[in-house]
């Protein structure tokens, strides 16, 4: 506010470092190309022409966890898949976020039985839950935007506490 008004139109903007970092994080969030079940098809639909998630800087699905910072758990997680999912999460570099897409990933959905984790939050920490079986692509996009809101208010202090 202050400096720009005093100096006039010199192409200078002042802001906090936190805002810039969070802004850049939200607008180039690379999800991991990782489909489990039915929701993966809707995730693909969200990437495709009709819904086009690249409007939000997410066109690049990375197949390697090392290159991605958002994990969309799209589908049910079985007892056999749980350890694999955890390993993939551990391989992602910080900062990283997780969206549990769909009912199965959020709470087990209709599958309340011996084979399925009742919510992926038993395996990895989840930031945003998206409801629906499967959620429409719009719902997924809404979930992503909700995550953006969350990331935008992140502070360095919290961040430092979290990854001490």
């Amino acid at each position: 506010m202050g400096v720009e008004q005093k100096l006039g139109n010199m192409g200078v903007v002042t802001t906090t470092l936190e805002t810039v970092v969070n802004w850049s994080r939200t607008n180039a969030m690379w999800p991991m190309l990782f489909g489990l079940a039915c929701c993966a098809i809707e995730m693909m639909a969200a990437q495709a022409a009709d819904y086009d998630m690249s409007r939000f800087g997410m066109e690049l699905m990375r197949a390697s966890p090392r290159q991605s910072d958002l994990m969309i758990v799209a589908g049910r997680v079985s007892k056999k898949m749980g350890p694999v999912l955890r390993r993939l999460y551990d391989q992602m570099p910080e900062p990283k976020w997780v969206i549990a897409m769909g009912d199965c990933a959020s709470c087990g959905g209709v599958f309340n039985n011996y084979a399925i984790y009742q919510g992926v939050d038993e395996v990895v920490p989840v930031d945003v839950f998206v409801a629906g079986c499967p959620p429409r692509p719009e719902a997924l996009i809404h979930g992503v935007l909700t995550l953006h809101e969350k990331v935008k208010v992140d502070t360095f202090k919290d961040f430092g506490e979290k990854y001490k």
Partner: peptide
């Protein structure tokens, strides 16, 4: 894994929501 899931004496594994 212990047991064989589709046997009738194997519990469904229902968890309270």
């Amino acid at each position: 894994t212990e047991g064989h899931p589709l046997r009738k004496d194997f519990p469904l594994g229902y968890e309270e929501p």
